[in-house]
């Protein structure tokens, strides 16, 4: 039942990888097993819970539903790619400060989905946030602290943006 392996190359968090894999391997298994990027968690394996969400060329995708071969040539960001030199990303920091996580298993998927949202909409309304996060399930927090985390992260990112542009001008 095994089939001929296929060579792929992709970039994850700025590092280039080459892998020889079976076409049936999921992107989640490639990231977790082959590339040992175990911060991407698998919660339901059928695309409902969103825990495995990663960014593929900047867009949020479910790593459990994609085949790894479909990511050939793509540039991915996983939770491991959010930090810069050990400094937490403002979204990560906001989730800590607003207690936007409890067990933390769903958190990487939330962080990346929020990352995509705030890239596209730096000052989202609560309805926009709810809409963006409607496909992410958290069983611990009841979402209220996540909502607070997103608000804080958005404010921080906007402030940083404003500070950077005022310095630049």
């Amino acid at each position: 039942m095994t089939t001929q392996k296929k060579a792929i190359s992709l970039s994850v968090n700025g590092i280039s990888y080459e892998a020889s894999i079976e076409p049936r391997m999921t992107l989640a298994d490639l990231l977790r097993g082959e590339l040992v990027l175990t911060g991407t968690h698998v919660g339901c394996e059928h695309g409902v819970c969103g825990a495995c969400t990663v960014l593929l060329d900047g867009r949020a995708v479910r790593a459990c539903l994609m085949l790894a071969v479909q990511a050939d040539g793509a540039s991915l960001t996983t939770v491991e790619g959010l930090e810069t030199d050990g400094e937490l990303h403002p979204i990560q920091q906001a989730f800590i400060e607003e207690h936007g996580l409890q067990c933390g298993f769903c958190t990487p998927g939330f962080l990346l989905t929020v990352h995509e949202l705030l890239e596209n909409s730096p000052d989202p309304s609560d309805d926009e946030v709810r809409d963006a996060l409607g496909g992410q399930i958290c069983r611990c927090t009841g979402y209220q602290a996540i909502l607070r985390s997103v608000r804080l992260a958005a404010t921080r990112l906007r402030d940083a943006q404003a500070a950077a542009s005022s310095q630049g001008s």
């Binding site: 977790r32 990027l37 939770v79 937490l88 990560q92 800590i96 207690h99 996580l101 933390g104 962080l111």
Partner: peptide, 20 residues
Amino acid sequence: GVDRVEDPHLVTGRTEFIDN
């Protein structure tokens, strides 16, 4: 309501869940 000591590992995907 202090920040949790658990969280830096969790938000960076470093917590050692069994499947890791």
